[in-house]
Design a binder for these strands. Structure first.
Lengths: 346, 346
DNA sequence: CTGTTAGCGCCTTCAA
DNA sequence: TTGAAGGCGCTAACAG
């Protein structure tokens, strides 16, 4: 029925072992023999049986990339960069690895299940992207999994995720970025800033918020808890949170959002409330996703080098780049000032 | 070293076959036995060997989803919906399938390589999303692959992609949508419309453009080829193309873009040229991606039910929904009129 | 309901 | 440089 390695061997008049060697290119094979084998492969339209090969070799060419939300360009951009470095078809690596994106939807259980599935497949490497959930039970469960994966020979890399002892980590400086962003606003003269934070339990949320508070504290501005609202990382949450902030304190002169998407929602809410940006209220985002430059006015935000970080994570996962000496590298964010922030109204 | 099924069997004092049956749940097993087995699995922290299981069973639990550009929400939204229906961990299906997204980057070669890799893994199903490249060599190569996959028992579904004899297809009515969009503009009084098309060789590009031309023809408006510019499906292309259109014919009163992302670029170019939207020039997009409502003014566009179509494709791929009788279902797009289009200037 | 018995297709020593 | 042979870990008949 299906063509097997043995069929190819028969046709090329060599042993199965030789065919295997030609296909894997790990052992010396005479040029003429290789020629014959490749012709047979072609004629028979042979396709290697992945499971059989993985079973015998005890490793597979599967590489998993975990993302929180595949519909969010934040993850799409990273995943794309990672995948292109992993090789996959046509990638720089030229290899034949099956780089594959798994969407956890931000759910801890799905994250664990995906890790198990990848472990099952004896994945060659796993890259986890984005912030983690701050739940000690889950954190230790993930830690266990990662250790087991690593023990089984799977390379594990974290990209844009807080460091963990079990893996190499490229971490975004969310705290520093958040701080610089708020400093910028304070520098413009703002004193009453609303802050729209992400979901409470996420590391990214906490770090960005801490940076914001650091900046407030440094400027001697009281951190009124009523000026902080939590919500999801989406536009709708930004819209609702902004209305809530305005309701709680109509005198705020700036809104700092957990990310660009949330900031867009904030802009919409402000417009719908008859407020001008930045004349009445300044707005700032985070991430510098492609669309943020198309907001009107264009969004002031913190640029994160998602593609660069992803590419590096991909190379490290493939063993084509030295991991950082300490096992942890911090990737800085860069403040990008555009039209959505200005001096507060008088 | 690693725990195997036999270890579990020994610990639970049953045969390997019984353990296998418990794990797969395909055969009746006494409750008490199952209990014992599951406990052993737990105590030993056993993880099934995917490749071995796939080899023996001649099928795997891997499901591939091919997308042209994972950083584009158009694909992200579809992929997310597909994946959630496929089950994957925690999905509705509750199953244990490894639903996985592969990024072809729009490259025909990578598309083929991914299909081969998936074939190699004996994937349970494959979903191809987005427009295809109109190259007969490539089309037949893909067709061959799809047939082979199908012959090997892999379910193949196309989502938002033109029909092919080898697979079930859910196709977007790009032509009809394009037509209604241009009709809308003509209805507003526009007679000189610029059109920014996607890459020449893509089916999506052609269909949307045909719809546009159908509408022009029906209204007796000459289709001046100088009013059509091709470019990539990104913001930058939209920007450049708009400048080019304005250069060729400053009297145009509307710009129809190949998709929303391109439309954003068009908006930026118009603004930078000192033109107001829609007072001086109307702009229309396609797809109705989430950000299109945040454009200022909000974008008139054609809404495509990406999530619904993706979910349906996922269910069909899992055999949980009847495929359309003819093997082809056309998914209509809905005209959404917002602020970016209006009557032409005097 | 459960155990026994063969492979699934390939890789990888070991010899030659 | 090539061939022979064993086994990777699991599933799927077939008995019982």
């Amino acid at each position: 029925m299906t063509v097997t390695l043995a069929d190819v061997a028969a046709r090329a008049q060599v042993s199965p072992a030789t065919v295997s060697r030609v296909l894997n290119g790990n052992y010396p094979v005479a040029a003429s023999t290789r020629e014959r084998v490749l012709r047979a492969v072609d004629e028979l339209d042979y396709v290697l049986n992945g499971p059989a090969s993985a079973l015998a070799a005890a490793t597979s060419d599967l590489v998993g990339i975990l993302v929180n939300d595949i519909a969010d360009p934040f993850f799409g951009i990273m995943a794309s960069a990672i995948q292109s470095e992993i090789g996959g078809p046509g990638g720089r690596a030229g290899g034949e690895r099956l780089a594959v994106v798994c969407n956890t939807g931000g759910s801890p259980e799905r994250e664990l299940t995906y890790l198990t599935l990848l472990q099952r497949q004896r994945a060659a490497a796993v890259v986890l992207t984005g912030g983690a959930v701050e739940d000690s039970a889950h954190a230790s469960a993930v830690g266990n999994k990662l250790r087991k994966l690593a023990d089984a020979g799977t390379r594990v890399v974290l990209c844009g995720r807080p460091p963990a002892p079990e893996a190499i980590a490229l971490t975004f400086d969310n705290r520093g970025g958040g701080q610089r962003l708020t400093e910028h606003l304070i520098g413009l003269g703002h004193r009453r800033l609303g802050y729209i934070a992400g979901p409470e339990e996420r590391t990214t949320t906490r770090h960005r918020l801490e940076g914001h508070r650091d900046a407030l504290a440094a400027a001697g501005i009281e951190d009124d808890p009523r000026r902080t609202v939590h919500g999801r990382y989406d536009r709708h949450a930004g819209y609702e949170a902004t209305l809530e902030l305005l309701h709680r304190d109509p005198s705020i002169t700036a809104v700092v959002a957990a990310n660009d998407t949330v900031a867009l929602g904030a802009c919409a809410a402000l417009r719908d409330s008859g407020l001008r940006i930045p004349d009445d209220v300044s707005v700032a985002g985070f991430d510098d996703l492609p669309f943020s430059i198309d907001a009107v006015p264009a969004l002031t935000t913190v640029h994160l080098p998602l593609a660069e970080a992803g590419a590096r994570a991909g190379r490290i996962a493939m063993g084509r780049e030295e991991p950082p000496a300490s096992g942890i590298a911090t990737v800085p964010g860069e403040l990008v000032v555009r039209g959505s922030t200005g001096a507060p109204r008088e």
